[in-house]
Nucleic acid binder design. Structure first.
Lengths: 232, 232
DNA sequence: CAGTTCATGTAAAAAGCTTTTACATGAGCC
DNA sequence: GGCTCATGTAAAAGCTTTTTACATGAACTG
């Protein structure tokens, strides 16, 4: 049977780039029908190969899923890292960007987000997945550490790790309850971004940060020159 | 073929309570293999009937799943409602109970929690599911409203609805990231309960609540005698 | 109590997915 | 040109889902 029907020109017996095509197809399918609905055979069909072909590149359906989760975390790390930008031009506004970037990723890449957090793929399915997940969280933790250093004296200062977990759970909670593409979205009196921003603001106020949004610029050079150049 | 092999005594051609048995079986299976892994045929087998029998009680696999989600929300409503107990003996401690109850439910009933929030069942799969979901959230919102009434004067007081959404997303974020039975649990420097309690405490401090845990008892009789009797 | 009815179950079958095994192809290499 | 091995295909077994026709017996009905 001819599997590569009419999708572009024939490429002959060998596909040439099947692994990539399968990853892309699976991503599309997850986006359309959810992580649960996606089918190995469907991905093969979409790539124009026989149902057995994918087994040359992935041990089974789960390995394909975890590969997508891994790729998702890689992009996630990029996005969060870019948003954080080592805390430039100042910790507070960079931090705010990270939050927005988190929600933007969940909204714009629901297929990746779904594979990463809602597909049932264990976070330690393979060492690389675990590692890249840690790196992504590491960005949130780095931001939390910089924020922790700014907590006004006289206020109880929780461990930076705990703050990072708080930020992560706030973001993930909002993303998974309200910021997804599917019909699970509840009707909100505001956007998820506004909801998260308000939540973080109240939380930071609870840590003693000044309540005025403008006061955030007053970032003291508390540590004598970290590894980051001064913002120009 | 004899479907009702050796599980207890024979009950003859008719099962007698198949719907209930299927719901129970499905719940067990979801608990063991996750919402994605659970199979309609498996539930039938576990109930001791033919693979076609479940179709007499559920339109398809999805309807069984959403029935479980609905039942889960009913229990959730009970648990949260019991914990809230109309804010007795005081708003703050009752509120704290609700948070603990939320996480306890997620941990002790992972199968229900999974069907409710991670199975891909749309929140409006049927009107009753939507309704009971709203009622459960309504408890959180009621608590948020009572808390909002206690926000000290001079502090910006966010809409109670927004506070409720914040509490929900905090709880759900922690539950779904850290408080689940499966291997997705990350290693934490503290329990999920402690994590949530700290998060809520900081948030409340951000709303102007006294930071001292003991000060919480000082709840003014702000409204002249609500519908709740005074705690004995 | 006999007879009928109807909800509830079974059997069988079609269609599709997963995964394995044996075989086919052809790209890259001596 | 001829090997060799990665990469595809075909075929098959064993699942699941879902439908259709038929079987059973519990509960009315007269």
């Amino acid at each position: 049977m001819n599997w590569r029907k009419d999708q572009g020109r024939e490429r002959g017996y060998h596909h040439g780039n099947l692994k990539e095509a399968l990853l892309q197809a699976a991503l599309d399918l997850i986006g359309q029908k959810g992580a649960a609905g996606f089918t190995f055979a469907d991905a093969a069909r979409m790539a124009g190969v026989s149902p057995a072909a994918p087994y040359r590149h992935f041990r089974d359906r789960d390995e394909l899923l975890s590969s997508i989760a891994q790729r998702g975390f890689e992009q996630f790390e990029q996005v969060l890292g870019g948003a954080w930008d080592d805390g430039r031009p100042d910790t507070m506004s960079a931090f705010e960007r990270v939050g927005k970037a988190y929600l933007a990723f969940a909204r714009e890449e629901p297929a990746y987000y779904s594979a990463m957090f809602e597909s049932g793929v264990p976070s330690d399915a393979n060492p690389q997945l675990l590692a890249v997940g840690e790196r992504a969280f590491g960005i949130i933790r780095a931001a939390a550490e910089r924020l922790a250093a700014l907590v006004p004296v006289g206020t109880p200062r929780p461990p930076a790790m705990m703050m990072a977990l708080h930020f992560w759970s706030m973001s993930h909670g909002i993303a998974s309850l309200f910021s997804r593409g599917d019909a699970a979205r509840r009707k909100l009196p505001m956007t998820p971004e506004e909801l998260l921003e308000a939540e973080v603001l109240i939380y930071l106020r609870g840590l003693g940060f000044p309540t005025d949004r403008r006061a955030e610029a007053a970032e003291p050079q508390d540590k004598p020159a970290g590894p980051w150049g001064k913002p120009k």
